[in-house]
Simulated assay, not measured.
Amino acid sequence: MDKYEQLFENYFEERELAENTRKQYLLGLKKFRNRFGKDFSKQNMMIWKNELKKEYAPKTVNIRLQPMNLFMDLINQPRNKVKLLKIQQPTSVENVITREEYDYLCQKLVEDKNEKMYWRIQFIAKTGARVSEFIRFTKNDLKNGEAVMWSKGKMRTIYIPEQLVKDSAEYFKNVDSEWLFPSPYNANNHITSRGVASSLHYLANKYNIREEAMHPHSFRHFFAVNMMKKTKDISLVSDLLGHASLATTQIYTRISKKEQQSHMNKAIDW
């Protein structure tokens, strides 16, 4: 590790940032240096930005630029930073599971007596947890009715609804692991994010549910939409999701184009 990478490492260590963030930022620095060496000039930053724009979507471009902008601060060259691309937020959401699809999925899992998948769906849909958090739920969390874990560089509390705790207690008594959702290969480890995504893909095909809506983040979005409908309190929903900004929560609470049109049709009486 050279002095430039060490600057990043020191920054990460001081702020106790997540390992994935470390890897992402170090990769961003490595890619830039593979292209320009140690020439961190504004001109090269602009060239880098333009090259990224030709190859990647705007969101990915910004992900690649953010590490280098931070690096410019660390080497006291803030003038060499470049502006991130402006990304227009979508006005609707389409790839989120609907209430009808969710109810149908739960019904089919009950009919097929697939308790393992039923409780996975219940927990990911009723807690608002990120998949990286969901896979780390423990029996102690179930007992406490909440999970306190380090996520996105900060401590976060994820509440488990009281009724969900009661309803699932009998099932989890028979799970021989400290994890609520252990790995099928080793009960000492929890299931992986990839394992969750794979199982949802399988269920989409089995029950003929839109595949684009059957992904882990869809259920977090589903939680946000339904909590907003029930509470009308965006600050509460933001806290439950662990967001640092209400602007982020607003993205999660958008509805589909079909719902937008339906609301408009009902509202217009002039």
Rank of each mutant, 00 (worst) to 15 (best):
Gln88Arg: 12
Cys106Ser: 14
Phe123Cys: 05
Phe172Ser: 05
Gly195Glu: 01
Val96Thr: 06
Ile121Pro: 06
Phe181Leu: 10
Lys166Ile: 07
Thr138Arg: 03
Pro184Ala: 13
Asp112Arg: 09
Asn95Glu: 04
Val148Phe: 05
Ile160Asn: 00
Trp119Pro: 01
Arg194His: 08
Tyr104Ser: 12
Lys86Gly: 14
Ile124Gly: 08
Trp179Gly: 09
Val165Gln: 08
Trp119Thr: 09
Ile135Asn: 03
Ala169Ile: 06
Ala147Glu: 00
Ala147Met: 07
Cys106Ala: 14
Trp119Val: 09
Tyr118Arg: 09
Met155Trp: 04
Ser92Tyr: 14
Gln89Cys: 11
Glu101Leu: 04
Tyr102Arg: 10
Pro161Met: 02
Asp176Pro: 08
Ala197His: 12
Ser92Trp: 11
Ser183Ile: 10
Asn189Arg: 15
Ile160Met: 02
Asn144Thr: 08
Ile158Arg: 00
Lys113Met: 11
Gln88Ile: 14
Glu101Ser: 15
Asn174Leu: 03
Ser183Thr: 12
Lys139Trp: 01
Asp103Glu: 05
Glu146Phe: 06
Val175Tyr: 03
Trp179Met: 08
Asn114Ala: 13
Thr192Ile: 02
His190Glu: 02
Asn174Phe: 05
Cys106Trp: 07
Ile158Tyr: 00
Pro182Gly: 12
Lys139Glu: 01
Asn144Trp: 01
Leu142His: 02
Ile160Thr: 02
Tyr159Ser: 01
Ala197Asp: 13
Ser198Ile: 11
Val148Trp: 06
His190Asp: 04
Leu85Ile: 07
Glu100Ile: 08
His190Gln: 04
Lys113His: 12
Phe181Gly: 04
Ile135His: 02
Glu178Asn: 13
Gly195Asn: 05
Gly145Lys: 04
Gln163Lys: 14
Ser198Phe: 09
Tyr159Gly: 00
Ile191Ser: 05
Lys143Leu: 09
Gln107Ile: 13
Asn140Val: 10
Thr192Cys: 07
Leu105Gly: 04
Tyr185Phe: 11
Thr157Glu: 03
